[in-house]
Design a binder for these strands. Structure first.
Lengths: 336, 336
DNA sequence: TTCAAAAAGGAAAACGTTTGTCTATTGATT
DNA sequence: AATCAATAGACAAACGTTTTCCTTTTTGAA
C-alpha cells in the first residue's frame, strides 16, 4: 500500500502537507495548485491512510465496543442497529461481541488495549462485581438496559410504564385473572416490569395474587415451563403478561400444546415488538420498547463520556416511549 | 495508561526485553528472575499493550470485517455466530457492519485502511460490479452464501440439495400441486433453490408448471404478496416451498388471512431453521442450512488467504449438510 | 585458569501518521 | 524600495510497539 511519504514524493511536497490535505486541516493554508497536485498523486497511487498509524499518533481508535449475550436474540438487533447508526453518524465503528465465547475479562480487553474507546454493555449475564471492577479502570463504558448500584452511566427504558400499559390493557379487556411471567427478578428489567404489573393492577383495583407470578429466564424454554405451571393452577389465568418476547413465544407454545387457543381461551401480551410479532398466528399484541433509541442514546452518551464533556456527573438516562402495539393475541376473556 | 517504556523503567530493564516477555518470544532467553520482575512491574502498573502501536509495527490488525444486510435478519445470526467463533479461535476480532447505513465504498474502506485484514461479504445487495472492483485491490475477501462469476473465494451451502429435500418431502406427503416462492432469481441462492425444486419434481415425476413459481424478494412483505397471487390461481397449490424463512413467514400470514389453515388446507415448508420456527403455530417444517458452519468455514478460508497459504488458487467451498427438520406445517393434502 | 559458546539483555531503527515550530516566499503598505 | 504580515510549505519529533543486530555476562568444558 502506498504511504504518505510516497504520495509526498510523487507530489514533490512534504509528507506533512499531504497529511494536512488528507485531513482537511483548517489551520494551514495550501495553494489550490499544490492541493490539486497532491490529490492527483493520492488518486494515482490509490493512497489510503493507515488507521493504525493514525490511531497510534492520535491516541484514539474511533471504535466502540458492544457486548451482547447472543446475536440470535432479536431483542438486541434493534439496539445494535441504533447504536451502529449513531456511531457511524459520529464517525465511529462499532465492534459487537457476543458473550458466548469469551469471559468479560476478554471482552473488555479491547478497551484496555485501546482497540475500542468505549464499551456498551447490553448484557445481563455479567456480574455486578465485574462491572464495578471495570469501573476502577476509569475507562468509558455505559450500561444499556441494565442497572447496577453505584454506576451512573446507564441508559434504560421505562419498563415500569411498559408493564403498566400491558397490564392495564388486559384489565381494560375485562380480565381479572392476569398472570405475569416475569424475567429474572435480580435484573432491573425483570424487577421493573414486575413492579409495573403490580402498579397496573393496583391502579385498576384488581387484586394481586402471588400465585399468578412466575419468575422465568428470558428464554423460550423457560417461558414454556412457566406457562405450564400457570395452566396447572386450580384457577388458571385468563390472560398473561409476558415480560419478554422469548418468554412470550414459549408461553404461547405451552398454551397451544394444551389444546387451548389464543386469544379465545387465554389472552397474551409480551414485551418487545420484534419483526415477526405481526406474522405470528395470532398476530401478537406487544409492548414496543424504544430499543433503537436506547442504542442510539447509549452511544451518544458514551461518546460524550469519551470526550470528557462532563457526562460523568450526569445521572443515567431513561428513554421514554414504551407503547402498546395492538394486535390479536388479546381479547375479552371467555364468559364475560 | 502505562507503556512498555514505563514498565521497563520500573523493572530496570530494556523495553525490548519487556516486549519479549509480553509476547513470550521463544527466540530469546530471559532469566526467570528478571522475567518475574517484569511480570510484577506489568501487574503493578496494570500494563496493557497498545494495539494500535503493535498493529502498526506488525502491519496487521487481527481484525476481520463482515458485511450483512441487516442485523435483525435472523438468517445471518447463525452465520455471524459461526464466523465470530472461528475468528476468536484464530485470534481475530470480527467487525460486523450492516449495509443499511453505508455504501460498499464505506464498507470496504476499513479493509483499504488496514483496520481489518479481510472481509466477509454476506450480502446479496452488493452489485457484482462492485465486488469485481474490490477484487482489483487484491485485498483478501470472501463471499458467503453468494456466487459472483469470476470470483473463486466463496463459501456456499448446498442449496440445490436443500430445495430438493423440501420438494421431495412435499411429494412424499402426497402433494402434486406444489408451488415455489423463489428468492430473487439473480441471486445464487434463489437460482439454486429453484433448480433444486425443479429437480425434485422431476426425480419424482411430478409435472413442473411455471404458474406455480413466484419470484419474490427475501422479505416478509414480498412473501405475503407472492402467496396471495398463488392463492388467486384458478387451481391453487396444496403445498408451498418457500425459498427463505422471511418469505415463509409472509406466506403463512397470507394463508391465514384468507381464512385457510396450515397444514390442513395448505402445507408449507421453508428454508432456514431459525430459532422461532419451532414456536410458531403450527411449528414449521423447515430445511436447515449449515449457516453456522458457513460462517466458520468462511473465516477459516479467509484467514488462509490472508496468510497467503495458497488458498488463492483453491476453488470455492460448498458446505454440505442441508437437512429436513420435520414439524407440523406439512401434511398430506386435503382429499387425497 | 582459559576460552569459546551460549545466554541474557541493550541499542536503535522502523512502522505511517500528526502536529508544533520554523523558514521562505509572497503580497500589501508605506 | 523597504518593511511587515500573511501565506505556503518544510522539518522533525513523537505516538508505543517490535525486531534485528549488538554487547556484555555467564557457563562449563578443557
Amino acid at each position: 500500500m502506498a504511504t504518505l511519504k510516497e504520495v509526498a514524493k510523487l507530489a514533490k511536497v512534504d509528507p506533512s502537507v499531504v497529511s494536512r490535505v488528507v485531513n482537511n486541516d483548517p489551520a494551514l493554508n495550501i495553494k489550490t495548485e499544490t492541493r490539486k497536485r497532491i490529490l492527483d498523486a493520492i488518486e494515482k497511487m490509490n493512497y489510503r491512510p493507515n488507521l493504525s498509524a493514525r490511531n497510534l499518533k492520535k491516541g484514539q481508535s474511533k471504535m466502540l465496543g458492544m457486548i451482547i449475550p447472543d446475536f440470535s436474540n432479536p431483542v438486541y438487533s434493534s439496539m445494535i442497529h441504533g447504536a451502529e447508526d449513531q456511531a457511524a453518524h459520529e464517525g465511529y465503528n462499532l465492534l459487537v461481541y457476543s458473550m458466548k465465547q469469551k469471559g468479560l475479562e476478554k471482552s473488555y480487553s479491547p478497551l484496555l488495549e485501546g482497540q475500542i474507546e468505549g464499551l456498551l454493555i447490553a448484557n445481563s449475564e455479567i456480574d455486578n462485581k465485574e462491572i464495578l471492577e471495570l469501573k476502577k479502570t476509569k475507562k468509558p463504558f455505559i450500561l444499556v438496559n441494565r442497572f447496577v448500584p453505584g454506576i451512573d452511566n446507564y441508559v434504560v427504558a421505562n419498563d415500569v410504564l411498559g408493564a403498566k400499559l400491558a397490564t392495564k390493557h388486559l384489565i381494560d379487556q375485562g380480565h381479572h385473572l392476569i398472570a405475569h411471567i416475569s424475567g429474572p427478578l435480580f435484573t432491573g428489567t425483570g424487577l421493573n416490569r414486575f413492579q409495573g404489573y403490580r402498579e397496573g393492577l393496583q391502579e385498576k383495583n384488581v387484586d394481586f395474587s402471588p400465585v399468578y407470578v412466575q419468575e422465568s429466564k428470558y428464554t423460550v424454554e423457560s417461558g414454556y415451563e412457566s406457562m405450564q405451571r400457570l395452566l396447572d393452577l386450580p384457577t388458571p389465568p385468563t390472560a398473561v403478561f409476558a415480560s419478554n418476547i422469548m418468554i412470550c413465544l414459549g408461553a404461547m407454545k405451552a398454551i397451544h400444546d394444551r389444546g387451548l387457543s389464543v386469544p379465545k381461551d387465554i389472552s397474551i401480551i409480551g414485551v418487545h415488538d420484534v419483526f415477526f410479532a405481526s406474522t405470528l398466528q395470532p398476530p401478537l399484541t406487544t409492548i414496543e420498547m424504544p430499543l433503537y433509541d436506547m442504542g442510539k442514546e447509549a452511544v451518544k452518551k458514551l461518546i460524550t463520556i469519551i470526550q470528557g464533556d462532563e457526562g460523568e456527573n450526569e445521572r443515567g438516562i431513561m428513554i421514554d416511549g414504551a407503547s402498546l402495539i395492538l394486535r390479536s393475541s388479546t381479547s375479552p376473556p371467555p364468559f364475560s
